[in-house]
Design a protein around this nucleic acid. Structure first.
Lengths: 218, 218, 218, 218
DNA sequence: AATGAATGAGCATTCATTCAT
DNA sequence: TATGAATGAATGCTCATTCAT
């Protein structure tokens, strides 16, 4: 009804980005539901109404960031690195993801948390992020199985295990606690683990081990 | 005359439990923020105000359920199963967790989602659930390393990878899509994977493989 | 989030009525769109949220009043008055409507204004108020035509003209200005006008006619 | 290249008209409150801010249109038609109004709806439209009474009844439902009704009467 | 002990209006 | 002259929490 004192005309392309930045920071700190548009506006240094000049809804802010900061960069990242020993490939990719997820830590968190209860978002992540991974991992693993480098194993299982591990290392960090190693060490070690498992190179039939303690932890 | 038994004055200890049950089911289905106290009261067949006779706040409901339904039963579950081949141990434990998480699927979801943004809850989970796991896994892995069954590997990494995998299989299911195998198959296969990795039993030096496709996916 | 100091527990049946009264008064004074739920709450001496314990939405307030104050009384009004000269029937019914509309003046105004742009409400009014009127007027007029008391005329036209006149006398008052006569005089005069038109009289004494069907409709 | 002619710098007087046209169409379709300045700007092919170069406020748009599109043309319409049988006069005038209101249907709707709650607008309509009608109808009816063609009847009542009927036939159409007859039939039949009422005829042939003054008022 | 009516701050979103460009 | 980005008060509605009954 009133519309007083419009502040300042900003660089028009920057605005959108600023709002996105502010929103993703707050989402990351507090979760999507707990973050209000008022807070976002305040953090971006604009009026509440201005948000809606750039985004149709609060939810679109979530989707927009996922699109522009997770999905798009992903396509850009796919490049170079053609052939290399499995170990190297694994390590590189894992490191890459670890870095990305570390950097976007807070934001990935929200997306996951939201996706739990927002089928639309879950579907988006599934479509745009996971499906491609399935295909690539399938190729990679089936190739290895075909030429005898890998055991006959379900590629889906490998993908899930790898994604899960990355998940535990980057996103669940708050819960599992920090890992003392550098991300590069983590990547290299994880790659080795996924390739060789726990077993010593020359298998020895193991003596009995207690398992129950295991149960208590996660 | 019909289904609406006027539920007056139940066993006072049962009430608490009923509310907890109702709350955790709803939290699981819709997320914590999206579940209202009205819904909880309705589901528990009581008045809204009654909730506050048993719990100081909505948040306490979350904590209470974690305590009584996840942590306590966990301690009960830890039992028997002394010695057995690593593969068996692993498979059993994984299956056990997979089953538990499957059953509690919805609830674990909320706890994780909430823990992302609630340091108090994150600390609780870390303390009561994860720390114990760390100790046990440490024992298990260090034992294996000591007697030559396992490579020299960081037990923390193994734990994180295993937890992550379980996570991906049970909690991220909505995002990664369902796995076509039975939980038993999953458990056995995961155990084998964690023990042996991808590599074929008789190592073959791999030809070069393209890795980039891998990058595109998760 | 906070819910402080609940004021007072009122007579439970009264509340709904109080809110309805407050709403219809404000709607009448300012129009539907211009009346805010805050104002309604204030006028009813309650908190804003309380409105929504009794009505699902602001729009429902509009519909509820139409239902309870216009439609229901209409059915109650249909009574007694069986046979009487046309002139008496007409005058009575017109007076009755004139009184009702006068009393509800403000509220009818909103409903009409709203119905202009709200097809749902328009349909409701058409269904519940106008259709019945059509039927009754049809009977009345066709009866008169059949026994030679009335000219061969379209009953729909008569109904529209009568409703329109009532409309002009009660609702358009603000625009047409007030009429100096008492409502009874208006009613009698209108009845005569509708029966005889402008033309100077060539009176015919009418046989008795039942009037009640007429009452039910507009 | 396509339909988006960049409409830069039109004839400055045309602009005002274009905005008015756009506004009145939208007001008519959706009501005044529900029409946004953004929609008006879009419909007029201009920027939102430009509206305020021509009109001080949204409300002024309403007044401006009433002035320029209803009142002014009305004065132009008043013309010719000197003497003719009452029936002819009535029918002509009613048809004229019916046509005008039909054409302006949507706009009249808003004005009425608005006038209900806007005394300023109500007064304007009363002054400029209704008062003139009162005078003319007074002349017409008093003339008829004087020379014995009409019964002794209050001219105000006749005007109100006629306006109301027109109202019901053109504006309330959405509520009363459509009339199956042509507008010409309606006009003729209404004229007959107002002259003769419902009563079976004892016709008296009326002398000629002037009709034009009638046109100026409602 | 249990109720559920009542609260009111808080939410996402809208929109007439302003003014730097 | 015309623009449209920016404003921010205001809106309808929600919901955790309180407390008289």
């Amino acid at each position: 009804m009133d519309g007083t004192t419009p502040k300042r005309r900003r660089a028009p392309e920057t605005r959108r980005e600023e709002i996105l930045q502010a929103a993703s920071r707050l989402f990351g700190e507090q979760g999507y539901e707990r973050t209000t548009t008022k807070q976002i506006a305040q953090a971006a240094g604009i009026a509440e109404g201005t948000i809606y000049k750039y985004f149709a809804s609060k939810q679109e802010l979530l989707f927009a960031f996922l699109e522009s900061s997770v999905i798009e960069p992903l396509n850009a990242i796919i490049s170079g690195m053609t052939g290399a020993p499995d170990e190297e490939v694994f390590a590189t990719v894992i490191l890459n993801r670890l870095d990305l997820w570390h950097e976007r830590h807070e934001f990935v968190k929200v997306n996951i948390a939201e996706a739990f209860f927002n089928p639309q978002l879950a579907a988006l992540i599934h479509e745009k992020l996971f499906r491609g991974g399935t295909r690539a991992m399938e190729q990679f693993v089936r190739g290895g199985i075909a030429d005898g480098r890998f055991r006959d194993i379900d590629p889906g299982l490998v993908l899930r295990a790898v994604v899960g591990a990355l998940f535990a290392f980057s996103i669940l960090r708050d819960i599992t606690g920090p890992d003392p190693h550098t991300r590069e060490e983590q990547a290299r070690e994880l790659a080795r683990f996924f390739l060789h498992g726990l077993r010593a190179p020359q298998p020895v039939e193991p003596p009995v081990t207690p398992l129950l303690p295991l149960a208590l932890l996660w």
